[in-house]
Amino acid sequence: MSRLLIETSTPLCLLQDAGRFGVRHLGVTQGGALDWVSMSWANWLLGNSLDAAVVEVTLGGLTLIAQQECVLALAGADLGATLDGQPLAPWRSFAMGPDQRLQFTRPLSGARAYLAAPGGFDAPKVLGSCASVLREELGGLDGLGKPLAKGQQLGYSSQSQRVREMPGGLVPDLVANQPLDVVLGAQIGDFSGQSLFDAFNAPWTLDTRADRMGIRLLGPTLSYLGKPMISEGIPLGAIQVPPDGQPIVLLNDRQTIGGYPRLGALTPLALARLAQCLPGAVVRLSPVVQETACQEHRRFLERFAV
């Protein structure tokens, strides 16, 4: 077993995995890593299953001190990580010796970094997952959803399986300004024509009102012309439009049901990219039909089969 002492942390440093499934009918949120692509690569670099428990570091502020020899992997945002003061670039595995210090300082590129350990970090599975959801008191190191805290220890029990390097050309470009694909659906037919035009042509600015439940987009006011809705299930990535006309992209920790009309939902690949955007970033939305999005998603997953 190898352990890492947490010297500093923030409320945005969380143990995550792919999320909690099979319990949403009870009102339990999905949870899980916001940038699942980076989580998957971090695990892939160590030969883990792609959904093994990782640490999601948002913006920085995490400092870990190795207690024993460790092998870890880092993917996702460049949060100015250093190993004993020396810069440590993401998208690679690395070794740490006893008393070496890993520090995440500030976001240089992207917003969320993912740290993986051989076999995944040790944590109790609560309702099938260790995804941390504070408001539901589920997941995390303590099983009660709390973020990582100073003084706690992160550990892992497996030997490193098969340490690998990123395949050439497959490092995601987190700053690429590619439009975010939206699977058209839900109540999209009940928005005004102008709103549909605006939704897919206007630039949208990420508001500071953003957390793991949702990210508000600022831009033209969208108007829904349909009837008031009865609450219904909300899928991951749903773009809901409350009465003020400013859309909200609903993320992993969203409520399970809700009654605001929706344009459809971002694809998982678009969500992974959105998760790396900071408030103030400008994004564009691009319409895609379900079948095409599915094919693209399946093709993308082949990358991990390398």
Binding site: I230, G233, I257, Q290
Partner: peptide, 23 residues
């Protein structure tokens, strides 16, 4: 089936897209 989310008048079916096409 990954999740089934019933509400007052609807049931949202969340299925594994690696096992089923939309059709």
């Amino acid at each position: 089936l990954i999740d089934l989310v019933p509400s007052y008048t609807t049931l949202m079916v969340h299925y594994d897209l690696l096992r089923l096409t939309p059709g």
